[in-house]
Computed example of a mutant assay.
Amino acid sequence: MALTGGGWPIIGWARSAVAPVGGALSRLAIHDLAAPVLRHLLEQIQLPVDAVDALVLGNALGANGNPARMVALAAGLSTACPAITVDTQCCSGLDAVTQACGMLALGQAQVVIAGGAEAWSRAPLRMHRPWQANEPALPYERPAFAPPPFRDPDMLEAAADTAQRLGISRQRQDAYAIDSHHRAVQAADRVALEIAPVVGLTYDAYPRLMLPQRVARMPAVQQRLDGTGLDCSLSVAGTSPKADGAAFIVLATPKACERWHLQPQARWLGAVSQGNAPEEPMLCVIAPVKTLLQRHQLHPTQLSALELHDAFAAQALALCDALDIPTTCLNQQGGGIARGHPIGASGAIALVRALSQIKDRPRQARAVACVAGAGGLGTATLLAPW
């Protein structure tokens, strides 16, 4: 089997449902959450565990260690199988897939499982060690993402600042969120086909039909007015909730496809990761998406699917404005606003969403999955049917 038309063969994909923190997946450690998804995927494509040469896992809240190794062992992969954890915060799941393709290109592996997992409900509590022995340890919610003198704003503040600076009104944000939930509810049965059952959960738990009057009454989590007095505040509806979830794909070389009688379903065509100003993380997905499209001579309207993990409605609207596309081109079956945000898995889930939507399209179809991350990072990946 040759790499006809370029790209690495993607053999299959699967993900868990996404559930808000404290919900149906809240009692699962990361390996208990991710291993059933991985096993389901291997059974689905009829690949024996000893065929897997490596696991690359994106994770952001596992408190260091090596969550990938925990997942690999819990899933029954060979003890000889290397397991690598990638932490680029929200970009972790997509970056893990890029790393996996690098392993194939370098001849380090023939079959690699890659993706992301986040058990936010079970994330360890964090504390800074005291400077003096007689001082208490100091709890903290998140680590620093940029050192002084860079600004390192809280993500809510950064999203509100972006909305204010770009004049993205709360009304527009709320309308986008309502539409995202509506799309997710309408597509729920189709989306369920990519979901591996974990503790009996087979549908994303968060999407719901939302009334505009009710959304308008929801409190603002960050209040902002732009220079003209336009209300650019962030509401609860326009913010993706903290969540648990996992997603994986299987990549293989043409040689491995022949050896294990694997039928590719899609192709990984390329990826771009870029940095931007740390104080504007919401905008950091724009540059890699534009670079990726330019590199492959594509216009955004030529894409069959454009999947952004939209942690904030303002972020999604900023991307649409930058690409000069209507919001109907983005997250056609609902996005992260309607699902939730399992940080290290969010990019991989967007990837699975894109793959599911192009699987049965003509070979020339293209899809992009993209995500922005704390600290000023962004990643975009280009996909095609096999």
Score class of each variant (00 low, 15 high):
residue 284 C to L: 05
residue 300 P to E: 10
residue 305 A to M: 10
residue 344 G to A: 02
residue 340 G to E: 07
residue 278 P to I: 04
residue 312 F to V: 02
residue 271 A to Q: 07
residue 342 P to D: 01
residue 255 K to G: 12
residue 282 M to C: 15
residue 341 H to I: 08
residue 328 T to Y: 10
residue 338 A to D: 03
residue 341 H to E: 04
residue 260 W to V: 13
residue 325 I to D: 09
residue 327 T to A: 15
residue 288 P to T: 09
residue 324 D to P: 02
residue 274 Q to I: 13
residue 287 A to D: 08
residue 301 T to L: 13
residue 285 V to R: 07
residue 347 G to S: 03
residue 252 A to K: 01
residue 301 T to W: 10
residue 319 L to Q: 04
residue 308 L to W: 01
residue 290 K to F: 07
residue 293 L to T: 06
residue 309 H to I: 04
residue 345 A to T: 06
residue 274 Q to M: 14
residue 308 L to H: 01
residue 340 G to T: 06
residue 286 I to C: 00
residue 334 G to P: 05
residue 314 A to M: 03
residue 340 G to F: 01
residue 299 H to E: 13
residue 259 R to K: 13
residue 282 M to S: 15
residue 319 L to N: 03
residue 333 Q to F: 11
residue 305 A to I: 05
residue 314 A to D: 04
residue 282 M to K: 11
residue 301 T to F: 12
residue 288 P to K: 06
residue 287 A to F: 05
residue 293 L to P: 01
residue 270 G to E: 06
residue 264 P to K: 06
residue 281 P to N: 06
residue 271 A to G: 10
residue 345 A to G: 06
residue 339 R to M: 11
residue 258 E to R: 11
residue 256 A to H: 06
residue 274 Q to N: 08
residue 323 L to G: 01
residue 253 T to V: 02
residue 333 Q to C: 13
residue 313 A to H: 03
residue 334 G to R: 00
residue 267 R to I: 12
residue 346 S to E: 04
residue 263 Q to V: 15
residue 289 V to A: 08
residue 285 V to L: 10
residue 341 H to A: 06
residue 336 G to C: 03
residue 293 L to C: 11
residue 305 A to H: 12
residue 282 M to T: 14
residue 317 L to D: 07
residue 258 E to G: 14
residue 252 A to T: 03
residue 336 G to R: 00
residue 294 Q to C: 12
residue 276 N to I: 07
residue 260 W to A: 10
residue 300 P to M: 03
residue 269 L to M: 14
residue 331 N to V: 09
